[in-house]
C-alpha cells in the first residue's frame, strides 16, 4: 500500500510541476516536451487506478500522435514568442481578476456540491467488477453495444475533419514533377531512344 501511495505522490507531483512548465517555458518546443512528461505521469496515475487500457491509450495516442504532431507544428510554424507575449503585462490584471472571480465561483459550486438522490440508480454504464471483467474488455463491451451510435458518429466527425482539411489545404500546383510509376514502367525503348548513324566526317544536321 505504501508503495502505491508513494507512487501516487510521485506521479502527481511530477505531473503538476511539468504542467506548470508547459505554460511557463519561453521556448514552445520545451513546452511540448514538458507536455509529454505530463502525459506520461497522467498515464502512471491511470495505472494506479487499475485503468491500464486508458493508460496505454494515453501514451499511444497523446504522446505518440498528438504531442509529436504539436512538436511538428511548433517547429514548422515560426512562432515569435516575443510578439505573443506583447501586452501580456497590460492584460494581466484583467485576466487575473476574471480568473480569480471564476475560481471563487467554482469553489462555491463545488463546496456545496450535491447529487440528485437518484443519481446512483440512474447511472448508465456502471463499472463492472474488476475481478470478473478486465477493464479493456469492459470498455469494449459498452463501446460497441450501448454506445455504438455515438462511436460511429464520432467516426463521421473525424471523416468530416479529414475531408475539411484536404479541401482547405490541398492544391494542385502546375509544374511540379511527380513520380508516375506506371508511366515509367510503360516507357519503351523505341519511344525514347533514337539510334542515329552518323556519317564519317559530317555532324548531325
Amino acid at each position: 500500500m505504501i508503495v502505491a501511495s508513494l507512487a501516487f505522490y510521485l506521479f502527481s507531483f511530477i505531473a503538476i510541476v511539468s504542467a506548470l512548465n508547459v505554460i511557463l517555458q519561453r521556448n514552445p518546443v520545451h513546452s511540448v516536451l514538458w507536455l509529454i512528461l505530463t502525459f506520461f505521469n497522467a498515464a502512471g496515475l491511470f495505472l494506479l487506478l487499475g485503468a491500464e487500457f486508458l493508460a496505454m491509450i494515453l501514451v499511444v495516442v497523446y504522446v505518440g500522435a498528438v504531442a509529436v504532431l504539436f512538436l511538428f507544428v511548433v517547429m514548422m510554424l515560426d512562432i515569435n514568442v516575443a510578439i505573443i507575449r506583447e501586452g501580456f503585462m497590460k492584460y494581466l490584471p484583467v485576466g487575473a481578476f476574471i480568473g480569480i472571480v471564476l475560481l471563487v465561483e467554482l469553489a462555491l459550486v463545488f463546496g456545496g456540491w450535491a447529487m440528485a438522490p437518484e443519481a446512483q440508480s440512474l447511472r448508465l454504464a456502471v463499472t463492472p467488477d474488476m475481478a470478473q471483467v478486465p477493464n479493456t474488455e469492459a470498455l469494449g463491451l459498452i463501446m460497441y453495444t450501448q454506445y455504438v451510435y455515438v462511436f460511429q458518429a464520432a467516426g463521421l466527425v473525424l471523416l468530416v475533419a479529414m475531408i475539411g482539411s484536404i479541401v482547405l489545404t490541398m492544391r494542385r500546383r502546375p509544374g511540379v514533377r511527380k513520380q508516375d510509376i506506371s508511366t515509367q514502367v510503360n516507357r519503351r525503348k523505341e519511344d525514347t531512344v533514337e539510334i542515329v548513324k552518323v556519317p564519317v566526317g559530317k555532324g548531325i544536321a
Binding site: W113, M115, A116, A119, Q120, L122, R123, L124
Partner: peptide
C-alpha cells in the same frame, strides 16, 4: 452529469 449521474435526457 455530476448532479444527475446520467447523461440520458430521460434519466
Amino acid at each position: 452529469y455530476g448532479f444527475g449521474g446520467t447523461t440520458s435526457f430521460d434519466g
